[in-house]
Design a protein around this nucleic acid. Sequence first.
DNA 1: CTGAAAGCGCTAACAA
DNA 2: TTGTTAGCGCTTTCAG
Lengths: 370, 370
Amino acid sequence: MHPTRLALDDDLRHHTPKKFDRTDRTACKTEGTGGRNRAVTMSTIARMAGGIQATVSRALNRREIVSPETLERIQQTIEATGYVPNLVAGALASSKSPMVAAVVPSITNIVYSGLIHHFIDLVRAAGYQTILVEAGFSAEEEEALVTSLISRRPDGILLTGVHHTNRCCSQLLSVGLPVVEIWDLTESPIDICVGVFTRRLARLWRTLPTAAAMPLPQPRWLAKNAPYAAGTPSAQPSRRWGTRRLCKLIVEGPASLERGRAALRVLLERGMQSGVIFGSSDLLAHGILIEAQARGLSVPADFSVIGFGDQDYATATLPPLTTVRVDRSDLGNRAADALLARINNMAPEQRAIDVGFSIITRGTTCSQRN
Amino acid sequence: MHPTRLALDDDLRHHTPKKFDRTDRTACKTEGTGGRNRAVTMSTIARMAGGIQATVSRALNRREIVSPETLERIQQTIEATGYVPNLVAGALASSKSPMVAAVVPSITNIVYSGLIHHFIDLVRAAGYQTILVEAGFSAEEEEALVTSLISRRPDGILLTGVHHTNRCCSQLLSVGLPVVEIWDLTESPIDICVGVFTRRLARLWRTLPTAAAMPLPQPRWLAKNAPYAAGTPSAQPSRRWGTRRLCKLIVEGPASLERGRAALRVLLERGMQSGVIFGSSDLLAHGILIEAQARGLSVPADFSVIGFGDQDYATATLPPLTTVRVDRSDLGNRAADALLARINNMAPEQRAIDVGFSIITRGTTCSQRN
DNA sequence: CTGAAAGCGCTAACAA
DNA sequence: TTGTTAGCGCTTTCAG
């Protein structure tokens, strides 16, 4: 193979925005009608089809109870006018919007968005639309958001995590909205919760042979277990955790490849010799692998790495990443099922649904017992 | 450093779900009240505070026009009852929900979610909540979704891409909803559009020195330019494109590290010698880097790689990734600005806003001219 | 099967 | 400043 030379034309390299003028306004609609043209409603359709508004409503919601001819006429006029029913009026009258709300800390984090993706699919299949909102990681922000969500009177609501302000919980409770909390498991959820049982994981950490370091946080419930305050990459003095010496490293902000790399640098500076590094996300763990490679260190010969999340790319790293897997699609599905069940007034069999987790052993750990 | 041994207790390794029973039902609410307890409304508050419903409405929306004492009394009762206003009634009465809708192909793809994140922030600052929905990559699905969104009467709507069904466009037009389309730029948007001017990018590709391969698609508008049908990883016979020989490789499905690795394997099998490989996303490009490394090939000595997206991790790869950057936060912000402007009935200065793009040169290309 | 009529909980004139 | 009164566009009894 020969080296490749690549030269970029300077004028192409940065493409400076081009301006359009607004001569072509074909699509602009506020013109011509002179003021807002009266919206077409059910009554409009009824009048045009020679019937009454209630019949149109029936034609739309329970087609089987109107005569075929009437139905036909109504459908034709609907088609002709391009009428779209007003769901907010419907929701007011029937006090049920076909809608649920989902609150996640971050929509850009695949850990949440992947799960929510499945959730949305399932509730959609049941006829519900999802209004998805981002709450950041603060319970106060969440409270404000939840209040404004409640004011939209969704049929149900999904919350991430189990730490909510008191106001938030009591509001939810007093409205009597079905709510499902995901990720953490608590034995006294607001309504139902589905997720993994945190203490189990913590216990797992504690029993592992040599815990060398543990970049944090991201999944909130890992963060919860951190005995040290967060700070910019800085190692804490090693201390005993369970029966092992643990050096915990808090990585501030969202996980990223770069933060993972930085984490390993810090750990090495602090004299880390060997052991296993826990990443609170696969991304962080992957960053650690890359930094190791850049420094000529070998994983798992020099140290082990365990990620969290089992993202799809965990099989594609060098070497493939050992990681903690929580079945997110399962979680999303169960959350949807549980919420739908509650919406339909079914008492849940269990109030806390544990989806469990497992360790997927790949190339970044050695699996021999010692 | 010494090798690390890692042994996992078998009973801990897989944590089988634990069952909870439902004895603790402290939080269950359908109990006690015997049937649905009448919801508290503005009238309830008014009665309790010794006033009239309209005053409560005023206290909530335009506090400055009610007397301090009345305000005080009302606020206290609201506090006491935990009353949350019903926005759907409000929306019906005022025919404005403080809400906009956003339609993206995929919420799990950071390319969209990153941008939407900014969009949401900005419109929220203006008092609007965003209902976010996923449309997949089909215009038909999108149409159905848009219809159901319209039925919720949002104040505005954001669409991804410029390819929509006719019904979709005409419905949007007939409702007279402010709409902003993002990513692609077209000179005849439904309402306004903000994004990058595709033809410019295509022209850039064409002038590059040696185009060896181009894994596709993901950004829809790259896909659009593909002269070959999609298929599982398989190289197309090289053909002339512009003045260069181009070997295009279509990668099916969403981009992933693994698909990038597979792509390089295929390209090598097909006898790729040198040149530059375009990834339609940074993830794909990163996969290519990893595979190169696994095979002992050197980038950019053996071949160059250019990604797309300038994700945060592009600086953290080995070597750092040269990539095409579209400022997504800028795009999200401008989209929000544009939509808000339209909602406030301001005629846009331009109907198409070009945010441009740039090539960020890092370590995976050599920059010497030839 | 179709009509008539009473709201759903709020906003927005208008009047006092 | 507060009270009165119409609706918003639909769902849902209840009669016909």
